[in-house]
Design a protein around this nucleic acid. Sequence first.
DNA 1: TCAAAAGTGTTCTGACTACACCCATGA
DNA 2: TCATGGGTGTAGTCAGAACACTTTTGA
Lengths: 244, 244
Amino acid sequence: MPAAYSDPARFPVTVDVVALTVNEGALHVLLITRLIEPFCGELALPGGFVLPGEGLREAAARELAEESGVAQIPGYLEQLHSYGPQGRDPRGDVLTVAHLLLAPNFPVLAAGSDASGAGWYPVQKLLDGELQVAFDHLLIVSDAVERARSKLEYSPLGAAFCGEEFTIAQLRAVYEAVWDTRLDPRNFHRKATGTPGFLVDTGTVSGGEAGRPAALFRLADEARFVPGEPVRAVLNPPLMRPRG
Amino acid sequence: MPAAYSDPARFPVTVDVVALTVNEGALHVLLITRLIEPFCGELALPGGFVLPGEGLREAAARELAEESGVAQIPGYLEQLHSYGPQGRDPRGDVLTVAHLLLAPNFPVLAAGSDASGAGWYPVQKLLDGELQVAFDHLLIVSDAVERARSKLEYSPLGAAFCGEEFTIAQLRAVYEAVWDTRLDPRNFHRKATGTPGFLVDTGTVSGGEAGRPAALFRLADEARFVPGEPVRAVLNPPLMRPRG
DNA sequence: TCAAAAGTGTTCTGACTACACCCATGA
DNA sequence: TCATGGGTGTAGTCAGAACACTTTTGA
């Protein structure tokens, strides 16, 4: 028998954000140190309770800003998956809606009221068990990484890890870090620049590095992701990661 | 300032199920007629409130069983997306976690306490606006259909729409209905049977129809989806839908 | 014998791989 | 001039599209 419509059960709802970036050729995730119980002192994903009158995405952006110290969220944010409410918080049933943020490496310096020490940690150390995280956040991070990996194949979101303008080599470094693989620079260059509706040449070049300066690109207008909307442009043909 | 940890806001949480099937060569969705306010008398997705102590998937399976009248849920069930809590229910903030069910056409005969007249309706009539549904359920159905379409490319879930054993032509009819396209029967046959780890020939044939009897296949063991688990097997190479 | 549907062979084309090669810069 | 990395050309291979063709059944 379902609960009467007039008196349904109510649950606390949290949002958690898996912010991923590429740093030093490896995928990193943003973690905070919890200052309150439960799991006080342990690492966890930034997140917190949804407030009355808030939407999910709104809450995720607010929590991320509060706990990482950035005013404007860079990169691409989307909903990942919901977990719970059963059996994931020692205090009782709490539903969490996890979000995924793909972002360029931004500096974090926040100290919130219930979290501190936000910082980037190598994802591989979590997956290998070298770093512990609170709640079911290891599962959430695993799901997020898998989502990010497949996102790169069919969407232009690899560029979400880069700044506004970037070289093909920087974009390739993103793919190599996320997929944890090596790609042929020549073929990647041709594929990325040859995919219609993906990149446009800005006409400028990057300097200062060793070797020949690289051309700077940005996302084509039709591939740009606007903060509020789901990504629409599909890479066709996809940039497939090597299998097997 | 976030809400105090000890006193977070609480929200009613519902689960909604977008059950899709293929019938007469077209994609259909399971809808019920609401017997209570709001939207009394209108069509809506089967669903209802999550009860204390329940998990999301558990709640979705329970609601589907209650409102469609089937004891055992056939097919493949996965979480789709969460919506809300802001601005989607006239009574106030309600979070809903939508689920997607891909199932063979099963008979529905239920009458629940707050819903009746469960039945299969052509998805296209909803998308074309010929049929109205309550709440934001049109958006949810649209998202579900798009998810189903991409699922068929990279997973063996096309077979979730078929029974235990099926012919290649039946499987092809599923793909054609979901993608709303036509596929070359010869090439589809070769691709489906030639994809390693997808299908196994049962050795039996289907009879009774006009023309040469077709061999019956079932999913290979490694491609079977178990009720509780996410689908793991990836079709490689993918069965791509025709683009552009 | 004919219609209808299952299943196979064959050719063409286009995309990916691998790798050779040239280009532009700093030291 | 050499090292370093950016960018292009090209041949081999493989998978998909298109479609002719054979097979097996019911009427």
